[in-house]
Design a protein around this nucleic acid. Structure first.
Lengths: 213, 213
DNA sequence: CTTGCGCCGATTGCATGCAATCTGTTTCTG
DNA sequence: CAGAAACAGATTGCATGCAATCGGCGCAAG
């Protein structure tokens, strides 16, 4: 049997990232222990790890809540991502294996399908696919310190289920960015991929916090 | 009485950052519990937090060790710092209060004294002063996400007691950088301060991992 | 002499119970 | 009636005890 703490952390992580638990929700230790059928000890351990990842906020003697971000913090987060993530993509491009490129293709294509306007549109699914898309690039950059610095910062958009707030135009742009980024990666053109990632983030920022504030 | 876990974390943090516990040292829970006169539970909590800060590495079922960094990781760390810390300084400059400027003055001056060649030279003291110097700029930038991203990454140089490996020339340059950075900050010139920080980091990188690898 | 297997001490992971702290409500006082 | 103190329920923080896992040593087989 796998360690209980890690399993609890994984469960919570998925529930938070999938939006099943909303931002700001209080996380009582006893409640979680009952729901996941483990003692409070591994729950505390799990919450501690999630706090390290920036997914939950831990206040002394006052328990844990799913992390929240002010618009000011979102602004700062995008400033950070704009400095790090395009660089990560550039570093990743020469390291990408054929399997990873295929996976990126698959993710980008599936996002296009899930995003097509109409009855079958599934924005929640896009959030998850998008998370894996960005995560794959970050991991492929092959720099643990870089991945660590980006870890806490990429979650904000996911938890806020950002795609739900996109305008149709912004959504279409975003999905096409993914496809173009894979094309750039396949061409081995780091400059190109970096530029698209930069545009991709600007597009996201504009819809999440508005321009010209 | 203050929470035991935080107190244990603080103690360990200081011991690690001061170099009292060397990089790579094994940290047994029972040993620490005895030495700090608390149970193993808060020790585990403390180790968990320090792992989140990147000061210790936590391997499942195999305990904790003080973090170590390969030269490759040091290279990646400096790449990150070069992207974030000059930006942090630039953001900090307009926010600095008179008290903070005075504190920076004091730190820079004291480092100059402690670094003066001769019998009274105290490189270990410089490491600690330097840590506070950089930390003050990072905090003054007023961006929790930025501070979080830099937190884990600035510790590597401190734990390795980097100043002990500096050549006399590199040390002199480094100390003068501090003074000049405060001058730039006092002049309210973000560009200037940013440029000096960039040079400061390049100087550090050159002595820690060598140029032209 | 080297290599693989199995046992034993040591260490980490987890559950449980109790003490300390916080929150919301009530009650007392000015 | 307003505000502060005090009580009660609930929740977090910590200590202790036990089960699971790991690392090292010895022993036997090749």
């Amino acid at each position: 049997m796998r360690p209980a703490a890690e399993q609890a952390a994984q469960s919570l992580r998925e529930e938070i990232l999938s939006g099943a638990i909303a931002s700001g929700t209080r996380l009582g230790e006893a409640e979680l222990a009952g729901r996941l059928s483990v003692s409070r000890t591994p729950i505390r351990e799990a919450l501690s790890r999630l706090a390290a990842e920036g997914l939950v906020e831990l206040q002394p003697n006052r328990g844990a809540r799913v992390a929240t971000w002010s618009t000011e913090q979102l602004r700062e987060i995008f400033e950070l991502r704009l400095r790090l993530e395009p660089y990560a993509v550039r570093q990743a491009v020469p390291h990408l294996s054929e399997e990873q490129l295929a996976e990126l293709d698959r993710l980008a294509a599936e996002m296009m399908r899930a995003g097509k306007p109409g009855r079958a549109q599934d924005l929640t699914k896009i959030v998850e696919l998008n998370r894996r898309f960005h995560g794959l690039f970050i991991d492929a950059a092959g720099s643990p310190p870089l991945a660590g610095a980006l870890r806490g910062v990429t979650h904000a958009a996911v938890v806020h289920q950002n795609f739900h707030d996109y305008t149709p135009d912004a959504l279409r742009r975003s999905l096409h960015h993914h496809v173009e980024m894979v094309a750039a990666a396949r061409a081995g053109d780091g400059d190109w991929a970096e530029a698209i990632m930069r545009a991709h983030l600007h597009n996201a920022r504009a819809t999440m916090i508005g321009g010209r504030s």
